[in-house]
Amino acid sequence: SEEEIREAFRVFDKDGNGYISAADLRHVMTNLGEKLTDEEVDEMIREADIDGDGQVNYEDFVQMMTA
């Protein structure tokens, strides 16, 4: 549901600035027990970053979650 997606976005957007940065993503993945290299984190950001601004905004996140 849209509310679940919004809630998930809030979990990833640690600093609440409306964007998921590589640092935000790394933090959440580490908490989930996933040890990722910087390259892996950057690749995840690139794949999710639809508009190419280097971070994942809510619209990018929705597209990723509903793809």
Rank of each mutant, 00 (worst) to 15 (best):
F9T: 00
T37S: 10
I45W: 06
E43F: 14
A8T: 03
L32T: 03
M44N: 01
R6E: 02
F9I: 02
Q63C: 08
D13M: 02
L36T: 04
R10D: 02
N31G: 09
D38Y: 08
E43T: 13
E47S: 15
I20N: 00
G33M: 12
N57Q: 11
E34K: 15
V11N: 07
D13E: 02
Q55P: 04
E4T: 09
L25K: 00
N17I: 06
M64H: 10
R46M: 07
D53C: 08
I20L: 03
L32V: 05
L36D: 01
V62D: 00
E7M: 11
I50Y: 08
E2K: 11
E2G: 07
D53F: 11
T30L: 15
R6K: 05
K14E: 05
G33H: 11
M29K: 01
T66V: 12
V41L: 14
V41M: 13
Y58S: 01
L25R: 00
E34R: 15
V56I: 13
M29P: 00
L25C: 04
H27V: 12
G52D: 13
E40F: 09
M44C: 08
E39K: 12
K35A: 09
N17M: 08
A48F: 12
D60V: 15
G52V: 13
M44L: 10
A22N: 06
D24N: 08
S21E: 04
E59Y: 08
D49W: 09
I45A: 04
G16I: 02
D38F: 08
Q55R: 13
N57F: 14
N57K: 14
Q55F: 13
A8P: 01
F61T: 01
G16P: 00
E4Y: 12
N31Q: 13
G52M: 10
I50M: 10
D42H: 07
E59G: 05
R26C: 03
M64S: 05
R6Q: 02
M29L: 15
V41H: 04
I20T: 01
F12Q: 02
A8F: 07
Y19A: 03
A23R: 12
M29T: 02
L25T: 02
I45L: 12
D42V: 07
D53V: 08
V41R: 04
E34H: 15
E39C: 13
K35Q: 09
M64K: 14
D15R: 05
I20C: 03
R10Q: 05
L25P: 00
K35V: 09
N31V: 14
E59Q: 05
D24G: 03
M44W: 12
E2Q: 11
G52F: 09
M65W: 07
E34F: 15
E2F: 14
N31P: 01
D24T: 05
I45F: 11
I45Q: 02
E3K: 09
F9W: 05
L25M: 05
M65R: 03
R10P: 00
